[in-house]
Each structure stands twice: as C-alpha cells, then as structure tokens.
Simulated scan of single mutants.
Amino acid sequence: MSGEVEAIPEPQPLDLPILYIGVVSLLIAGLQPLVLGGLAEAGRLSASGIGLAATAELLALGLACGVAAAVLKPTGLRAKLALAGLGHAACNLATLWVADAALIGLRGVTGLCAGVMLWSAVGMIARSARPERQAGIFVTVQTIAQLLLAALLPRMVMASWGVDGALVALAAISLTAAAAGLAAPREFAPLPKSEAGGGRLSPLACAGLAAVFLYMAFIVAIWVYLEPLAAAAGLDPGQAHDAVAAALAMQVLGGLAATVAGARLKASHVLIGAGVINLGLVTALSAYPSGILFIGLVAVFGFLWLFVLPFHTALLIGIDPSRRAAMQLGTAQLLGSSAGPLAASLLVGDTDVGAAMKFAAACLAAALALIVAVVAVMARRDPVAETF
C-alpha cells in the first residue's frame, strides 16, 4: 500500500456533461482511419503522413491528459473545459486549410485540447465511489459513439462534402462539448492526501501504469494489423470486414458486461484471467486459422478489450488509494495505444505481418508478469487485507 489516505469526502457522481466531454475527446481514436484516410485521398497527407498524424494526435492527447492531471487544479472547471472545447473545434476547422507537415502539427495541437477534455472525465471516474462502473459506462458510450459516427459520416456527410464535411461535423460536435463544459460542475473534490510518499507515485503504482501501457500496446498492435493478418490467414476482404465488425460489436458487449458485473469481480482476478485467455488467443491467431474460427477469435479479442479496461482503474486505485495513479490512467492507455502500432510497424516487413503478433504477445506477457508481481507484493505486505 502507498500509505493510509483520507477518504474522498464526497465521491463524484456520474456527471453527464463531463461524460459527454470525455467521449468527444476520444472520438478521433475511432475515426482516424476515416479522417486521415480521407485527407490522404484528397492529396493533403502522404501515406507515411497518415501514421505520423495519428501518432502525433494520440501522443499529444495522452501527454496533455497526464500533465493536466499533475498541474491543473480541479477548480474553475467550466471555463477550462469550455476553452478546451473551443480550441478543439478551432483545430478541427483549421485542418480544412492545411496539408502535410502543417497538418501533422495541427493534429498534435488538436490532441492537446482533447487531453484537457479527457482529464475531466478521468478525474470524475477517479473520484467515484464505484470507479469500475463509471469507467465501464464511459468506455461503452465512447465505443457506441465512435461506431455511430463511423457509420453515419461516410453516408450522410462525406458522400457529398468529402473529408472537409467530416472535419466540419467534428468541429460542430466539439462546440457542443464546449457548451457542455458550461454545465459541468464548478469543481471536483480534492483527491485524498497520502501520509506516505507525498505527491509522488510509488514504484508499485508505476509498475501498474506500465502494465496498462503494455496491455494497450498489445491490443492496438494487433488491431491495426487485423486486416493484413486476416489476408495472411486466407480470408477474403469480405470476411476480414466481418471480423472487424464482430470485434466492434463485441467491444460494446464487453463494456456493458464490465459495467454490470464490475462491482462483483476483483480486478486482479479479471486482469490475470483475461491476460491468460488473451495469450491463448494470440497463440491461436498466430496459427492463421481460417474462416469462422478467425472471426470467432477476433470477436473474443474485441470483448476482452473493453471488458478489461474499467478494471485498470480499480487496479490503480487498489495500488494507490490516493488515486493519483488513476489520474494518469488515460496517459498510460493512450501512450500504449500509440507506441504499440509504431513499434510493430518497425518489425513488420512487406510479408511478415506475423511479427506484429509476436510483438503483441511479448507486450501482453510483460503486462501480465507485472500484474502478477504487483498482486504478490500487495499480498505479502498485508496478507489479511482485502486487495483489488
């Protein structure tokens, strides 16, 4: 344990404006293929620029969320969130008139604004009396919103106005998030103070954050190479699309399952059990199964993806009851989501997409080892305590 801490005087309830702002901040994570691919088709971004722009935005988002958690006080929330939403809208609109290096830089600035927006949602969840439930609601609503926009934008906006129409639509959504900021709480309760360790994260908390980073690197390293992996397994494009659709549908079910059952499950059991199952999935997918088996394995992968995410919050609060580690959760998840595909891309050649699976398996094994080690240390420190 990181020391005795004060209880949170008034746990933060689920706040709909904050939930909405957090969802808007992460919409781009599900829409990058659509938006960046459209910019490339319009000749404003090269093929290599797609990866650079995606990485710049997600890295900036994660870093801004972490810095905001470390330096911003949870007061004057309405002004801070309204300004972040306005900045996010302005960056989406400004993307209409830039290309190449300027576009990549601007997407990074867009990520900075989104990071402050995400900070508010992370702060709400970290201060909750039932953080795993609020985290489950957040990831489920976030996934549904991404799915709806990914389905609607190409048909209702981009068919007539191209990628510029999508950017204008995203800017309009960001403006609604800025308006939601004016309805947010004026402030959050301060986080409880630890009697040991001051404001610094303990080595155990850092190990927990590293496990989250590695888990997300494992997930996204597989996800971005899913269609090439399907092709290597002999699936035709239609079957590959079916696998992606199955994974997305099961993500929603996974988030819902975590929301409903989260309070009755121990985070350590879920994280270790899901890690073992995921190792089996990676092994099976590495054998390039064909047809329905490949789709079924990917569907289970999608379910576990979102089912596990809320338990990251419970893990970090169990390690560090001051909840400061939990405030860095978004940073660890987003940095892992960026670093995983970036590192995998350095290993994957023109024909060896299987290297992505090997890299993902290594990340997963390391994450699982860290979680097992953290659980063992916590149990040894206080064998009779009820841990996470």
Rank of each mutant, 00 (worst) to 15 (best):
I104E: 02
R155T: 14
A121T: 07
L72N: 02
M124S: 05
A135F: 13
W97R: 12
L93W: 09
G165D: 09
G165S: 10
P74E: 01
Q142N: 15
T143R: 10
I125G: 02
L63P: 07
G76C: 02
A84I: 07
D100A: 09
L153E: 14
L106F: 04
L81Q: 01
L77I: 03
R130W: 08
R133K: 12
H88L: 15
V141P: 07
A60P: 01
K73H: 08
I137Y: 12
L72K: 01
G123E: 06
V67F: 04
P154T: 02
D100L: 05
A70H: 09
V116H: 00
T75Y: 08
I125M: 04
V67R: 00
M156S: 14
G66Q: 05
G162D: 08
T110K: 00
L148V: 15
G76I: 03
V98C: 02
R127I: 00
D164F: 11
G105Q: 08
L61I: 03
A64Y: 00
L96R: 12
R130N: 14
A89V: 03
M158V: 13
I104D: 05
G85Y: 09
D100Y: 13
W161R: 14
V67T: 02
L152W: 15
C65G: 10
L118F: 14
R78S: 04
P74A: 02
A82I: 00
A60R: 04
A129P: 03
A64H: 01
L77V: 07
L58H: 02
G108N: 03
G136S: 12
H88T: 11
D100M: 09
V141L: 11
S160W: 13
Q134K: 05
G76H: 08
L61K: 04
S160A: 14
L103Q: 09
V71A: 12
A68R: 01
L77D: 01
H88P: 06
G115Y: 05
M117C: 10
L103G: 08
Q142W: 12
C65P: 00
G85M: 07
V141W: 08
A151R: 14
G111R: 05
G66S: 04
L61F: 15
L118N: 08
L81C: 00
N92F: 15
G62R: 06
G66F: 08
V122P: 04
A94C: 11
A150Q: 15
A121M: 14
G136A: 12
R78G: 10
C91A: 15
G162A: 11
L106H: 07
A135M: 15
A64M: 12
V67Y: 00
K73N: 05
R130I: 05
G108M: 04
D164I: 07
M156H: 13
A69C: 07
K73C: 01
R130S: 14
R133W: 01
L93S: 06
E132K: 00
D100E: 13
A89F: 11
A126H: 09
A82M: 14
L61R: 05
C113E: 01
A135R: 06
V67S: 00
P154S: 05
L152D: 08
A84C: 09
C65T: 11
V163F: 11
V71Q: 09
I144Y: 09
E132A: 10
L86F: 12
G66L: 07
M158H: 12
L96M: 08
L81Y: 02
A79S: 13
I104F: 05
V157T: 11
